[in-house]
Structure formats: C-alpha cells, structure tokens
C-alpha cells in the first residue's frame, strides 16, 4: 500500500509538525521508499521469540534527594523558556 499525501498530513498532525502540501507529496515518496526497505524484516522467522518478556529491563530508581545540582541551574532553566514570568514559564491557554 502506497502512502498518500493525506496519510502524511495525518502523521504530521499526530507529530505536531506543520508540513506544506508540496512537502507532503515529497515526504510520501521518501517515507514509502524507507518503509519498503525496512519491510524486509517481515520475512525473518522470529517464532522462537515472544513479546512481553521483561528480560534484563527493570526500573532503576534512586532516592528523591537533591543531587547537588548548582543553584544557578534553576535560574538558567527558567531563562531558557521563550516566555518567562517571574519564577514561572508562561504558557498559552489550554482549555477553552
């Protein structure tokens, strides 16, 4: 099944990326080519492997205590915000 520009438009909305109509056409072609290439893995026999095995992966937690990050980090983090108001990051209205 070939990707259509409408499919790209939908993916772009899901990804929160504005994509022009011209670019939708180009992206459909290029992403299709990559999907054709990676689709090769469908032929691999993986019947010996099961999903949902936790394996070696586990949660790695540490105590919630200050790590000695320099005090200036807080100020620098706030300074990086495009819109700052005092000690807050200013955001747009989310609910209407």
């Amino acid at each position: 099944m070939k990707l259509q520009p409408e499919d790209i438009e939908h993916l772009a909305l899901l990804s929160r990326i504005q994509v022009s109509q011209d670019e939708q056409v180009a992206l459909a072609e290029k992403i299709d080519a990559v999907l054709g290439y990676v689709g090769e893995i469908a032929k691999v026999d993986t019947s010996a492997y099961q999903h949902a095995e936790a394996g070696a992966h586990r949660n790695i937690l540490r105590a919630d205590v200050p790590t000695g990050t320099p005090g200036e980090s807080r100020e620098r983090i706030l300074d990086n915000a495009p819109k700052r108001e005092g000690d807050f990051v200013r955001v747009q209205q989310m609910f209407e």
Binding site: I8, L11, A12, S15, R16, I17, Q18, V19, E23, L27, K30, I31, V34, L35
Partner: peptide, 16 residues
Amino acid sequence: TRGEGFGAEVRRRILL
C-alpha cells in the same frame, strides 16, 4: 514551532 524549527531530515524521521 516544530514545522519551522526542525530541518527536513528530522521532520522525515519523526513522521516515520
């Protein structure tokens, strides 16, 4: 922001 801030290759990989 993301449409203008990310270049073509980054946009492509995020969509993929």
